[in-house]
């Protein structure tokens, strides 16, 4: 009896197995290169509120008071001061690759028109300053990355589109400042003509067509430059502090093509 029961159980098992083996297995999704890689192009434009503070810290901390014709000590003396307050309008272009459905790497180009008030002072103790309304160009060339963190949580086989959703990005590189020599020609003040720039952005991208996406991003640009004395650049010269020179905040609208 026990043997018969075991035989029936075995037959049931075989029957059950044959039912499934006779069915077709679901077709296996084959990954293609485009699942992991696609070209990335972006054109953007926007406006940012921007302000710059460029100045050189005094080494001797003495100021020649021309009225009294005597040297005056000032612990916090700065010279060759230029302040910019205004807006920057930019158009940008990025080219790179989009990898693993959540990560983009690119070369970043941006052309800025910095329009606003440029104020100059010889020394921080001067009461008088010079004001110019001017528009100047800045060019940024950097290398950066953009992440779509929420795309990480979706299965790569899903129909969820690339590039759709919230993103965060950064890039870094030099910004070249054109027109800095105007102050040298006019007032005899000397400034660095480039800054090291870090850029951060957070935004959202919507799928417009299969290949085109449109988006908006909040952007922060922070730039630093190291205004060094130009006299005696010996090997043992201590490096100067690197001050934060430019801060910009604003929005950009972008069109992305994959």
């Amino acid at each position: 009896m026990k043997r018969i029961a075991l035989l029936i159980l075995c037959l049931l098992c075989v029957a059950d197995a044959s039912v499934y083996s006779s069915e077709e297995a679901p077709p296996r999704k084959r990954h293609t290169l485009s699942d992991f890689f696609s070209p990335y192009f972006e054109v953007s434009g926007g406006a940012m509120n921007s302000n710059s503070r460029n100045e050189t810290a005094s080494v001797i901390n003495y100021y020649h008071d021309l009225e009294k014709d005597e040297m005056v000590y000032d612990e916090d003396l700065h010279y060759n001061i230029i302040n910019f307050d205004g807006w920057t309008y930019n158009v940008g272009f990025r080219a790179g690759a989009y990898l693993f459905r959540f990560w983009g790497v690119f070369l970043d180009n941006d052309l800025f028109l910095a329009k606003g008030d440029y104020r100059y002072k010889y020394y921080s103790r001067d009461k008088e300053d010079f004001l110019e309304h001017d528009s100047r160009l800045r060019y940024y060339l950097g290398f950066g990355s953009v992440f779509f963190p929420f795309n990480l949580f979706f299965d790569s086989t899903s129909r969820y589109s690339f590039l759709n959703g919230t993103f965060a990005g950064f890039s870094l590189g030099p910004t070249y400042l054109y027109g800095q020599d105007k102050a040298e020609k006019k007032y005899g003040m000397d400034y660095e003509d480039w800054e090291m720039t870090f850029r951060f952005e957070v935004g959202y991208l919507w799928e417009f067509t299969e290949h085109f996406f449109v988006g908006v991003a909040f952007k922060t640009v922070l730039s630093f430059n190291n205004e060094e004395g130009d006299e005696y650049k010996g090997g043992n010269m201590p490096t100067d502090d690197v001050p934060l020179n430019t801060k910009s905040f604003g929005f950009v609208i972008k069109v992305v093509r994959k």
């Binding site: 080494v59 001797i60 020649h64 010996g234 201590p238």
Partner: peptide, 18 residues
């Protein structure tokens, strides 16, 4: 003569006296 705005000094220079 020292006028830093006309001729920038690097930090290597230490003022001794006028």
């Amino acid at each position: 003569e020292v006028d830093e705005h006309k001729k920038t000094l690097s930090k290597s220079f230490k003022l001794q006296k006028f």
